[in-house]
């Protein structure tokens, strides 16, 4: 489904942000990447759909290397990879349903996408997805008027509109209150269990990872230090993932 091999990235050509990162994601599972802030979680996630150009390695999505695709092929591959963000990244002045419809831009012609010429089938699907995440009645609300939890659910509906095989989630609950956190995580869990979508989530909360993950990947200082089933995530393993280490600037990194 998704296999990452020997991924390597340095932003400045000096300090390594990722060193030889390898792991794979199984279909229909929740895979959680945990690690201290600055460990390289965001870099891994954005390399997968090539929002960041990495330096070396292999990213096999359905057996094609994302790194070898030309512009058009990359666009097509991105269509099947949903993504949600800590800051939601919705277009705030637009309504919830318009934001959800953005999920099908990748399958439309350039002009149809520019002028919002969506098919009736697409509009119905967008509405159904909003109902699925419990926001049916907010379809025509501007996103700027929604709460954080609601925005994240619109973000999920936008990702689902892509009919994705995998959804990448970069700290999806970092800005949410405890109640919204549960709602959002339950929806993500449900997508894996009931719809067979692979869900790959960056998190820094260990308790949430334990509760929702099937598989856990621990990252420290750009390297994989844990790659196993969630139930094998022992306190020793966690201490290892979050161990203090001196980074190249000489300051201590030990955040949770």
């Amino acid at each position: 489904m998704l296999t990452v091999n020997h991924l390597t990235k340095s932003y400045d050509g000096e300090k390594m942000s990722l060193t030889d990162v390898s792991f794979s994601v199984r279909p229909g599972e929740v895979t959680v990447i945990i690690g201290p802030s600055g460990a390289g979680k965001t870099t891994i996630l954005r390399s997968i759909n090539q929002l960041i150009r990495d330096d070396d390695g292999e990213i096999l999505f359905d057996d094609t290397d994302m790194r070898q695709l030309n512009r058009r092929q990359l666009r097509q591959a991105r269509c099947r990879i949903g993504m949600i963000f800590q800051n939601y990244n919705l277009i705030e002045p637009l309504t919830a349903i318009e934001n959800v419809l953005h999920g099908c831009l990748g399958t439309k012609s350039n002009l149809a996408g520019i002028f919002s010429m969506y098919r009736n089938r697409e509009k119905e699907e967008a509405l159904q997805l909003l109902q699925k995440v419990g926001l049916g009645e907010f379809a025509y609300q501007q996103c700027r008027n929604l709460s954080g939890g609601q925005k994240q659910r619109v973000g999920i509906a936008r990702a689902l509109m892509q009919r994705p095989k995998i959804i990448l989630c970069d700290e999806p609950i970092a800005s949410l209150d405890p109640k919204s956190t549960v709602t959002v995580m339950d929806i993500l869990r449900d997508l894996a269990v009931n719809d067979g979508i692979s869900v790959l989530i960056n998190l820094h909360q260990v308790d949430i990872a334990r509760k929702y993950a099937d598989h856990v990947i621990g990252i420290n200082n750009g390297q994989v230090v844990f790659d196993n089933r969630a139930k094998l995530l022992s306190d020793v393993a966690i201490a290892n993932i979050y161990q203090k280490n001196v980074n190249t600037e000489g300051s201590l990194v030990h955040e949770f």
């Binding site: 991105r78 269509c79 953005h102 996408g113 520019i114 892509q162």
Partner: peptide, 26 residues
Amino acid sequence: EKVQALQATGATYLQVIAQGLLPEIA
């Protein structure tokens, strides 16, 4: 970030501008 969010859906450069940038800055 928002540009990238739309690029991640597979949107083209012009689609990102029309659907994302222009409504936000209108």
